[in-house]
């Protein structure tokens, strides 16, 4: 009896996932039949003219998430190393939860804060960045108000930083004490132990953590919608505004002009689900080499 209930609950989870795919595909059908796979590459988004393409959105999603990964991966690993290899257990017990608290702050607050605090700051920063690094196309002409892909990347960095750092900390802590002792007894410095023993034996787990962070960044809608501008354009410069798949849905769903517009956003959602599922499965596949399931839980993460 209880077994049946439990099995039913499990079944419900699985069925929900399949139904989700089915439902999204169904609601996206008008857009799918009209634009086909060309939707993915087409960069025009003019709902008034019944022309929608997700090319610019996919580009913006990729660039903002890549930016966040580039910033959050080294930072997160460094924080994980600090918490597991440098800090004393007492400091670890204080600083660790503080870092994890970054994951508890809701995305709406990151968005609001990003718009009011971060964007003006980035606006100050951007001319300097452009002057210093303008020869790289990524840092081309800045926008005028700080609303930009860079701002989105920074907000996403803050949001995925706790995921990568908490998971990598937990992974580093699983490296057996005997191995670290063995290395220390050979006259190795802490950094040599990290580089020679800790990082190689946790590399795949850290990879999984980074992919999980990536999944979170790719799908973030609200926070990004506040700071990126929802401008349907492909700029090489991250100092210019842009748009992402998830953010577009958050910005335009309420005011959708027609059924095709809605269907196009369902199409975007379908793309997001496929990407999200792929990242979850990829993270699991990378992590399955050893048992990091325990550490991937983390409750708020």
């Amino acid at each position: 009896m209880l077994f049946a209930l439990c099995a039913l609950a499990g079944l419900l989870v699985v069925v929900t996932l399949f139904d989700l795919l089915y439902q999204l595909a169904g609601d996206a059908t008008p857009a799918i039949s009209r634009f086909g796979l060309g939707f993915l590459g087409h960069t025009t988004w003019k709902p008034g003219f019944n022309i929608e393409g997700a090319g610019a959105l996919i580009y913006g999603t990729a660039v903002s998430s890549a930016l966040a990964l580039v910033l959050a991966t080294p930072l997160g690993i460094a924080i994980g190393l600090y918490l597991s290899m440098v800090a004393s257990p007492r400091v670890r017990a204080t600083v660790g939860p503080l870092v994890e608290m970054l994951a508890a702050v809701p995305s709406i607050i990151y968005g609001f804060w990003g718009l009011v605090v971060l964007v003006p700051f980035v606006d100050h920063l951007e001319p300097g960045l452009h002057d210093a690094l303008g020869f790289i196309p990524l840092f081309g002409a800045p926008s005028t108000i700080g609303i930009s892909v860079l701002s989105a990347g920074i907000v996403l960095t803050v949001m995925i930083l706790p995921i990568i750092s908490a998971l990598s900390r937990d992974l580093f802590l699983t490296v057996p004490e005997e191995l670290k002792d063995g290395a220390a007894a050979l006259g190795a410095t802490r950094w040599e132990i990290i580089r020679g023993i800790v990082l190689p034996s946790t590399a795949s787990g850290v990879g999984a953590a980074v992919v999980l962070g990536l999944g979170r960044a790719l799908g973030e809608a609200i926070a990004v919608s506040f700071v990126i501008g929802d401008v349907n354009a492909i700029h090489l410069s991250v100092l210019q505004p842009g748009s992402t798949l998830a953010e577009r849905i958050a910005n335009q769903f309420q005011g959708a002009l027609n059924n095709l517009h809605v269907a196009a956003m369902f199409y975007c959602g379908l793309i997001l689900v496929v990407i999200g599922m792929l990242t979850s499965i990829a993270a699991r596949a990378i992590a399955s080499r050893f048992d990091v399931n325990r550490t991937l839980g983390g409750g708020v993460l």
Binding site: V13, T16, R216, I281
Partner: peptide
Amino acid sequence: ALDVMQGLPTIVVGLF
């Protein structure tokens, strides 16, 4: 399935 569900963008859950 639970992993995938946890990794779903919440906006997509809203669409669903």
